[in-house]
């Protein structure tokens, strides 16, 4: 992927990520999150992870965001009105974030191994979905079963929490 395209998708991802945080209306935040995840999926595809890019769109931009929008509509949330800031908390938050970006910058550009350009990969007859599937069903059989059990527990838990009377 050309460099310009990479920076465009990074910009889309970060701008809409900031929109998630600064928008007052929860619906606008949720829709910004969808665009942010689309930019992220494009970055996955630029890293030759086609399967994960598709999964990102299907699971996040599809299922998870529908769930978020559904809950926002269900609770009938209005845009926030009260804006009295806790000044100390805000100052502390901004200081922490500035320091975090500083540390991040130092670590990233002081890391020599990170200056490598894209190493060439050979074109195999099977795509990356086949490779991930082989790893998943041969090396990681037990974790896959455990994830299945986790999903069952999570869905039972969600149903139980939504019941009117918790006993």
């Amino acid at each position: 992927m050309p460099s310009a395209l990479f920076w465009i998708f990074v910009l889309v991802m970060l701008v809409f990520g900031v929109m998630v945080v600064v928008n007052r209306s929860p619906v606008a935040s949720a829709l910004s999150l969808v665009v942010c995840f689309l930019g992220l999926a494009a970055l996955y595809i630029s890293l030759d992870a086609f399967f994960l890019g598709v999964i990102q769109i299907l699971v996040y931009a599809g299922a998870v965001m529908v769930l978020f929008l559904f809950i926002i509509m269900l609770l009938d949330l209005k845009a926030e009105q009260r804006r009295h800031f806790n000044l100390i908390a805000m100052f502390g938050g901004i200081v922490v974030i500035v320091l975090f970006v500083k540390v991040l910058w130092d670590v990233c550009y002081g890391f020599q191994g990170g200056n490598a350009v894209f190493p060439a990969i050979q074109n195999t007859e099977h795509g990356d979905t086949w490779q991930v599937g082989m790893a998943l069903f041969q090396q990681y059989k037990l974790p896959l079963q455990m994830i299945g059990a986790l999903i069952v527990v999570a869905s039972v838990g969600a149903v139980l929490l939504s019941k009117r009377e918790l006993k």
Partner: peptide, 16 residues
């Protein structure tokens, strides 16, 4: 793009 660029993008998204 190098690995550092991807790590920086990831770190900035985390910061947001």
């Amino acid at each position: 793009a190098t690995l550092n660029d991807y790590l920086l993008a990831s770190g900035l998204l985390f910061t947001v």
